[in-house]
Nucleic acid binder design. Structure first.
Lengths: 154, 154
DNA sequence: GATCCCCTTCGGTCGACACTGAAATCATCG
DNA sequence: CGATGATTTCAGTGTCGACCGAAGGGGATC
């Protein structure tokens, strides 16, 4: 007997959340992200998320606030509806990833400052130079690569 | 009256450590890294690091073990010397960065699995598809970019 | 304005992890 | 083999952050 699609999807959501937990996103935040990526219908209220994901209303609220803040989720309120509806904002994933790439490239600012402090002592600067060289290259190439990113599929 | 170079370097080390602390590397581990990148002479014993960085011998030991493990620092023991000497391994920075890039690209494995679970329901898969598309592109381009990385400067 | 939901806020708990310092371990040398 | 000096191990402490659930506040409907 095979497991149902929804069961497998919830296992997938858990894997999804686990991955982002390693990157510092709270587990429940990751679950919300994964869930909103595959749920039907696409919009959910906080109460629904709380029930589906078996998390307290407080945790849902905190994490939604965070996700809305970074743009990965959008909140929609409607007149005549007391409950706000939340949905994934696929568009924001580009910014999300760009921030990660920038974080890597930004080390170059650090190594650069370090090199300045060691100017006049090339011998001593050798170790830092090797690292600076690599990050210098990345800070050139990563933004350039990013410019070539494809548009979203239709 | 201007501050000395060593004072400014220790401030730089602190910034350096702070950056990597955000990426999950313990503060003391980051300090060791920064310090070993600029110290003169290049090799230090655990006891010296403990004194210079004002950290307990235990913390130094734990963090050196971690740094040696990921390859960023190498340990050298010498006959006739009870104290091991530690130094930066500039070469290992490439692997270190590659792991970061891989971590980003590896999300594609997740989105791919998700797409499989939603096959047969293109409507519902639309949101995930947008994200999968982006990560698919990254998982092509990042390794390709990495292949073009420059050799260390002489 | 009273009622009813729903959401957010907030105090409190729990677990994880960095760090310390002392004790145990290990290697070298007399 | 004992002494010495260095490192690793380990138990204990403190901090931080995720999470919960109850209390409070804001809309919407009547």
């Amino acid at each position: 007997m095979s497991v149902g699609r929804e069961t497998r999807l919830s296992a997938w959501i858990e894997r999804f959340a686990a991955h982002f937990a390693e990157e510092g996103i709270p587990l429940i935040g990751g679950r919300i992200l994964g869930y909103l990526l595959v749920c039907q219908p696409v919009e959910r209220t906080a109460a629904e998320l709380s029930q589906e994901l078996e998390a307290s209303s407080g945790s849902i609220s905190t994490n939604l606030k965070y996700l809305v803040n970074v743009g990965l989720v959008t909140k929609r309120t409607r007149r005549g509806r007391q409950a706000a509806e939340y949905r994934i904002n696929e568009k924001a994933w580009t910014d999300f990833i760009q921030r990660k790439l920038n974080a890597i490239a930004s080390v170059q600012l650090l190594t650069d400052d370090g090199m300045r402090l060691l100017s006049g002592d090339p011998e001593r600067a050798m170790r830092l130079k090797a690292v600076d060289h690599l990050y210098g290259w990345l800070s050139e190439e990563l933004p350039a690569l990013w410019e070539r990113r494809p548009a979203s599929p239709k």
